[in-house]
Computed example of a mutant assay.
Amino acid sequence: MQDLRGVDLNLLVDLDALLNTRSVTEAARRLNLSQSAMSGSLARLRRLFDDPLMVKSGRGLTLTSRAEALIPSVQEALISIGTVFDNEKDTFVPSTATRYFSISASDYATAVVLGPLIRTLSAEAPNVTINVLPRTADVHTFVRLDRADLIIEPRETMGPTSLPSNPLFTDRWLCMLDGEMHDPSVIDDFDLDYYLTLPHMVYSIGNERQLNLADRHLASLGIERRVELTIESFLMAPLLIRGTSLACLVLERSTAMQRMDGLKLVEPPIPVPDIHEEIYWNPRHTNDPGHRWLRARVAATAAALEPVSRTDGDDL
């Protein structure tokens, strides 16, 4: 066993950041260090492990097999060390703290809950930076590798998980149409036959084109539609639908903050289950004072959201 008296244990924190971000620049930003300081830590770690740990791959860096194998051990070590020194004293002071947090969320969740959050944090925590990351199709691996401090996802997409989580809010699906492109009578009596004659726009995630929950539900029922357009942004739906005969399943809260004149929202002709957004995180952060503060602020922002009151079929 190596004599730990000759090892700077601060390097463990640097190593964790490097393994999770796979970037000297991002690791430095996460730990509020200069890039040169993080480069120096990487050089020391390479000597310590007698391994390059990170090597160039195209325009980025990739981990060596030795580095990949270190990920779970480093995370477990940091959790254990944190437990040793945890005196449950909340030392995070938002008004004076300088901290960098990353949150993975869809543009929908960003607009609904992170937008209001940021407007309050600018005064409450002026030196706290929030970095919003795009969603990923492999959420569990993303959390395990600690790529983000928080993940906002519908619990329906997560499935059974041992990850710690807190509920945020619920939303329902509606069908969006351009009212000027359809006969008013068919919108007032919107049925499945007419719905299936329309071209459709669907929301999907990443290069894998993973469908959203509503479209997955319809697919599971064997409902076949003519898809003309796939997008990765819920918030683009009003812009792209206007002036077309496209139909799109959208989340009601996403429509409450957009210009919707001329568009119609109607109940889908097939019932679609609601979604339940939650925040998830790596358990190593559960007792971190700053992380606890951030989780509480996100939850409080979600709890303060106004109920959506639009009436189905009204001009919007």
Rank of each mutant, 00 (worst) to 15 (best):
Thr129Asn: 04
Gly159Glu: 15
Leu192Asn: 01
Pro268Asp: 06
Arg209Asp: 11
Ala137Asn: 13
His276Asn: 14
Ser57Gly: 01
Gly313Ser: 10
Arg284His: 04
Ala299His: 11
Thr301Ile: 12
Leu221Tyr: 00
Phe85Ile: 15
Ser65Ile: 03
Leu251Met: 15
Ala237Cys: 05
Asp188Ala: 12
Asp183Asn: 13
Thr157Ser: 06
Pro238Gln: 03
Ser185Arg: 05
Val250Asp: 11
Thr21Tyr: 06
Glu153Met: 12
Leu117Asn: 11
Val227Tyr: 03
Leu211Phe: 08
Asn287Leu: 06
Leu163Lys: 02
Leu239Trp: 04
Pro271Phe: 05
Ala69Arg: 04
Thr170Asp: 15
Thr230Met: 13
Leu265Phe: 07
Phe92Val: 07
Asn32Gln: 14
Ile205Ala: 10
Leu18Val: 06
Leu12Trp: 08
His182Gln: 04
Val139Ala: 13
Val7Cys: 07
Pro94Gln: 09
Leu12Phe: 02
Glu277Pro: 05
Pro184Thr: 02
His276Met: 02
Leu70Asp: 04
Val7Ile: 15
Glu180Phe: 00
Leu294Glu: 08
Ala300Phe: 03
Ala247Gln: 14
Val84Ser: 05
Lys89Val: 10
Gly262Tyr: 02
Ala137His: 10
Arg310Cys: 02
Asp178Pro: 00
Val74Met: 08
Asp189Gln: 08
Pro116Phe: 13
Val84Trp: 14
Thr83Arg: 00
Thr255Leu: 15
Asp191Ala: 13
Asn131Trp: 06
Arg30Cys: 03
Pro164Ser: 02
Leu117Trp: 14
Ala304Met: 06
Leu15Arg: 06
Trp293Cys: 07
Leu53Tyr: 03
Leu19Ala: 05
Glu232Met: 15
Tyr280Asn: 12
Pro160Gln: 14
Ala302His: 05
Val227Asp: 12
Leu78Cys: 04
Asp183Val: 06
Arg30Asp: 11
Ser80Leu: 10
Thr83His: 00
Ile79Ser: 03
Glu88Leu: 11
His285Pro: 00
Val272Phe: 03
Ser95Leu: 10
Asp314Gly: 01
Asp3Ala: 05
Gly115Pro: 01
Leu53Glu: 02
Ser102Val: 12
Ala247Asn: 08
Leu211Ala: 10
Asn10Ile: 05
Ala28Phe: 06
Arg5Phe: 07
Ile205Tyr: 13
Leu246Asn: 02
Arg292Ala: 14
Asp149Asn: 13
Val266Trp: 00
Pro283Tyr: 01
Ile205Cys: 13
Ser309Leu: 14
Asn287Thr: 05
Leu9Tyr: 06
Thr62Asp: 10
His291Tyr: 01
Ser65Pro: 07
Ser220Arg: 11
Tyr194Gln: 08
Ile118Gly: 14
Asp178Asn: 02
Ser122Val: 15
Leu150Glu: 09
Val84Met: 14
Ser65Leu: 09
Ser204His: 08
Asp178Met: 00
Ala148Tyr: 00
Leu42Gly: 09
Tyr100His: 15
Ser57Arg: 09
Glu156Ser: 07
Leu174Asp: 00
Ile79Thr: 03
Asp261Tyr: 04
Ala28Met: 12
Pro52Lys: 04
Ile81Glu: 09
Pro94Gly: 04
His200Tyr: 02
Ser233Pro: 03
Arg66Asn: 03
Asp8Leu: 08
Asp50His: 09
